[in-house]
Design a protein around this nucleic acid. Sequence first.
RNA 1: GGCCCCAUCGUCUAGGUAGGUCUAGGACACCGGGUUUUCAACCCGGCAACAGGGGUUCGAAUCCCCUUGGGGCUACCA
Length: 545
Amino acid sequence: MSEKVVTRFAPSPTGYLHIGGARTALFNWLFARHRKGKFILRIEDTDQRRNTPTATRQVIEDLHWLGIEWDEGPGTEGPNGPYQQSQRKAIYARYIKKLLDEGKAYYCFDSTQELEQLRSRVKAEKKSFIYPRPDKYPSHEEALKKKAEGTGVTVRFALPRKEIIVDDTVRGQIKFGAGEFGDFIIQKSDGFPTYNFACVVDDALMGVSHIIRGQEHLMNTPVQMELWKALFEDIKLPKYAHMSVTISQGGGKLSKRQKPKALLQAIKSNKQIDLVKLAEHCNLTAEALEDFINGQAVPDVPVIDAMAEYLGVHLPEINVIDFLQNGYLPEAMVNFLTLLGWNPGDGREIMSVEELIESFDIERLTKTNSLFDRKKLLSFNTEYIKTISKEKLLEHFKDYIKTINSPVSSDDDELLGTLLEINEGARTLAQIETKCRFLFYENEQIEYQPKAVKKVLLTETGLAMLKLVRDRLAQIQDVTEEKLEAMLRSLAEEKQVGLGKVAQPLRVAITGTTISPPIFNSVKLLGMENVLIRINNTLKKFEKE
RNA sequence: GGCCCCAUCGUCUAGGUAGGUCUAGGACACCGGGUUUUCAACCCGGCAACAGGGGUUCGAAUCCCCUUGGGGCUACCA
């Protein structure tokens, strides 16, 4: 208990940080903070083909947004660097050699096809595949020769043949039979280590004490343990905690595949779509699009997003950045994500980061997989918008309007603060932004929603009422919300109608929609001059019709 | 196919390690009502679960077994 806790988050940079990864990072971070330990960020970029250089930066940005800070990692160098596996090749080579020298690993020359054949044969026998270990290991000279000949050379770990028991914090003791695992590759033919190897070496060298990860890694654990023991006799094995995973509505793990899946569904369910135009719009060849529709290939994320936007399809948010772009607060995300597979046990739900750190422990991790419920997240977000400090909310709002390139752009903190205030009760920052756009448009830029016009303006009283409102507005000196309210109320009373009958035409006239912040605030903020111009524009446009 | 994990309201979960205090609690969603200048927010009320079967026991949501269902892994991906 007294020993120092060291946890890590080790993403492979293949795209944006997704919700599942964020949750794993969060749990590791929370646990480290709770136990006053250390949290390391390590980038697992050993797959030359899949990693993109921008992805690392994006992952880092997403973690920053969530407020997850690491004690060691890229940008925060510590004694255990470098923290990108692609830069640790020499270290891995040393340990590969050590195993080779000790006869605990051996060279292999099989081609992909040969391995595939072996596998399919075993599959036919309904058994699990175990690589047949050679009686005599190839020598170093042989390996060099093969390599020179152009044959791919890999290195396999000679896994001790025995029962392995994993002691998992979440799941208890799990037994794996001696015949379940075979000798696995620890060094690929491109010279890079495989995940299982690099992971063990780094965890040991970096002093990781607790490995908290998704249950998809449970089957990796026994072989990693054996590797660890073969490599580092004197370093104590870490504690493992395999948490439940987050699954999505349609079933299956919440993953990157969700987006293309949703898009594909939308395309297939709508026969009206002009595929030629779609491909053109998204800079996609007709063949590539066809492949996608036939399930042959999946385009890159930006292309997927572009298609969705073009088609007006709402894709499920699965990446952290999606939530930023949809107006969620990081505090709400953190709180919500932590409650997926963990709870404090006393019924509390809305908890600050400080409270989470205070209460979080891996002892209360849930065993069951959980569904990511967007509605509940929304309610958390609403709660946070309501209760977070004004300064923080303003900061988030500015961040938000910047990232989405909103017409609501202003350096005037006071104005933005007012916008937030009059939108009390909003569920997302996106909602606030949409409702306030009208303030930032030119008067002539207003687009009238046909539905709003029909329902509010082109009625028996709509336009006539708007005229009346205009005339009375023009008479008000030194506009205040109170005066506006008094005027509109007395007008409603005079005409024996509800306030809606007078307020709605005005609202549509100045915003083009039926939805806006409270009308008195809206008028005041727009300024009387603009209000009158917009009313006149509206009257001119619709009186003829 | 093989191996592993899991199983409480629609969803997230409390309760399970120490079986009775559980006619199973909370939150979100949903439904009904209220408030209201729009969208929200807000207030009040309601619906709703121990997957099925067998044991053990005076007694089981809780322990054991089977079935079913869900999830994961089964790569020179991580």
